[in-house]
Amino acid sequence: MSPAVYLFTLWVKFSSMSSVLGLLFLAIGVPIILSSVAVDGKTADLLVNLVNGPTLAMAISYTFMQDNIANTRQMNDGEYLSLLFARPLTRSQYIVSKWLAGSTGVFIIMMLNILTFNTAQTLQGRNTVVDLNFWSMSDLILNALSYSALMVVIRSFPMRLGIAVFIILVYASLIGPALSFSMSSYEGAIPAVYMIFQALVFISNFLHHFVFPGIDLFEVLNTTRFSVLPLVTYVSNILMYLLLGTVLLSRREFSYGEE
């Protein structure tokens, strides 16, 4: 872990008005909008689940990784990173620092997001939806860590591939709650539509099982069938993503000249 890269990654988010406004929008604007839409408990639940699912965490960590894991930064990051990697900084330190910085950013913004949403709900005389307690806080931290690790990998991909994968994951995380059930019958539905639906269910389940690294600590620890598998899965996912990120960055060459 390199303190310089960690601090820089957090600091760079405050470097321009647009990125500060973007973060404020995610932290304060989004919950205020949602709160004004969430007229009843059920809608509020639905919206909060949508936001507190992987989607917002991924979006925030994606923006925190923005600077210079891979081919971003006005196409010049080869040069930019070449100066960085001429310093005594290992590629794995870089990845770990980026990961921790992203996690910190996700945690802070999600925290603000929830507090704002709760405040807005209370001011409108409604029930708060997410209680900040031990379980929700630990889930917030654990999921910030795991989704940031996933974003480290995506940010280590070549730019276009990374964007494509990110969009697929966001899409899957958004339709995730909707696809957490199967239709009982396909009477009346066109078979092709049904097949597509089943395929989406399958892909969504696959992604949720093997790619999305979230954890529900309450569920894992308060279960009647205790197993270490979810914990092992959680930790191995993070390590695997960090490893993959390091390998991709180590294999990467930085041509900075015209050749």
């Binding site: 290992t90 191995s236 390590l239 490893l243 180590s250």
Partner: peptide
Amino acid sequence: STTAVPKWLLISTMFLL
């Protein structure tokens, strides 16, 4: 090496997987 993948990361990941 600054570009090598740390052994601890490789081994612990493999072990957990």
